[in-house]
Nucleic acid binder design. Structure first.
Lengths: 291, 291
DNA sequence: CGTACACTTGAGTGGCCTCAATACCTGTGG
DNA sequence: CCACAGGTATTGAGGCCACTCAAGTGTACG
């Protein structure tokens, strides 16, 4: 019996060297004693006022960590997917393909990011999500999500907030692609990715592993592969970044920041509103209506 | 081509300068017996499976209809706004201004669209919303929103779904601006606006009132004022559209559709997932609070 | 009537694209 | 070991789409 194409061949040829980053090979998820959505709770810890106990609740919401090889669809455009998931480990991209084949990468999905919003609220997913490296995904049953609002409104609020971050990031990207030049877009993209990776411990002070090819960078920024190459070269020539293989080092942070119109406090804007949060006293019955 | 030839249009929404300055410092709707968020319920009726009773609940969620003159900020970037609102009447734009003054219009806000998502979940709003015409806005206290999930989970789910639509629309626009040419973007924009307006009864079969100046169109599509003018001219010369004043008539629907890569079923993709919706029946225990 | 604003149209420029050739890297097979 | 193939990155030449600058029209408003 020939091996189905499902598992090995397509996946292992894609990025053989990157497998080493992602845990040890394929240990079975079924018998796994306990995995955790550490990247997610870490993000929540950094930008919300959730207590340790509440973070624990978040951590235990999820079930069934699935392991996916590189290059596999987590969600496919046009198909139904009614699950809310979170990426535990690995890297993925969210993208949309136009009829003539042009592709727009909407977002790079990092550990701790949600998968399935907004797709799960629709009859069919509006875009696809594909893994770039071997990845692990956990799922959240919907009834459990809804029970959250009864039992732990503050935790439920945090889920809302995660949706908001997603939306806000799209808006940010819209203004980048709509208004900025190639150099500006690229440097902004690099700084944004660096910042996001730092929060979940995937990047150090000023360098990170860029998980995208130049073609994928182009599809994310609305530019061609060729022009990405030229623009990267320009950034290198100007001494703003240093590139060795997949590793990107920000050589001149202030200059790149100015060029990109990037605010150092970028992610600070995404902090969860405390005033709103405070209004939600734990599960006790709300007596008064608004304000 | 005087713009006053709007004729019978029941809603006086489309004319920025027509309405006099009716500024409402506090709430200016005391004498009004009852307003309704008809555009919102109409949208929900078209694309969800909410019952008439549930639509009624939605309709009665909102308080304090504020009236705003044209050109007023509903939300200002950088300021705190912790209210979720809905536009009842009028037109507004959501936009973000870069440091050097370039502006990206993220969305055109029509009656029935939400205001305050995702801003209300953050410490400070990430973008501004400004009225283009005299507008009316209703607000939703947050505790009321959260009680919804306890008392009417299906209705709460519909709110989630509204957030999702917002996000999905951004994603759609991202791929448009990132991948498409000027003609494609513009025709897609026109068809999208037509479709959205039809749902809430602001447009007929093939024409509508375009509430934006060419400069605003440019800021929405990542193009310059001048190029919008040329592109509109091209569409007119090719017999695809007819423009008289603010009124836009789609003269050749199929051709424009093909050019824009626009799916006639565009908004159908945004239908609320029924399977998910049905799963919520069990936990529905309407312990109604109001009599 | 004069200012203000939105739109139109022309001429010239430039950023990014397309096409194309070359080099590199890794895995595969002779 | 080298030859080869496929995917990725680099670099050049030329072209086009959209931009900039600028002049001119039409309409609204004081």
């Amino acid at each position: 019996m020939p091996p189905t194409e499902a598992g090995t061949s397509a996946a292992t040829t894609a990025f053989p060297s990157r497998e080493s980053q992602v845990e040890a090979g394929g240990d079975g998820d079924a018998g796994n004693p306990r995995w955790s959505v550490a990247a997610l709770t870490r993000k929540l810890e950094a930008r919300t006022s959730l207590s340790a106990a509440e973070l624990e609740i978040i951590d235990e919401l999820w079930i069934e960590a699935r392991v996916l090889a590189a290059g596999r669809d987590v969600i496919t455009e046009g198909h139904k997917d009614d699950m809310l998931s979170v990426l535990i480990d690995g890297i993925a991209i969210r993208y949309r393909v136009l009829r003539d084949g042009r592709r727009q990468i909407l977002d790079v999905v990092l550990p701790g990011d949600l998968i399935g919003f907004p797709a799960c609220f629709f009859d069919s997913a509006l875009y696809s999500i594909t893994t770039l490296s071997s990845s692990k995904v956990a799922r959240l049953p919907f009834l459990r999500l809804f029970r959250l609002f009864k039992d732990y409104p503050r935790v439920g609020m945090a889920m809302f907030w995660l949706f908001s971050c997603e939306t806000a990031m799209y808006a940010e990207r819209l203004s980048a692609i709509g208004q900025r030049s190639a150099v500006e877009r690229l440097s902004h993209f690099l700084l944004e990715l660096l910042t996001r990776m730092q929060v979940i411990g995937l990047a150090d002070e000023s360098s990170f592993n860029l998980p995208l090819t130049q073609e994928q960078l182009g599809d994310a920024l609305g530019l061609t592969r060729v022009h990405i190459s030229r623009t990267l070269r320009q950034l290198r020539d100007d001494g703003l970044i240093i590139v060795t293989g997949q590793k990107v080092i920000i050589a001149d942070f202030p200059a790149l920041e100015a060029l990109a119109d990037f605010e150092r406090t970028y992610l600070r804007h995404f902090r969860m509103s405390d005033t709103l949060f405070a209004a939600l006293v734990s599960s006790s019955e709300p007596r008064s209506s608004g304000s």
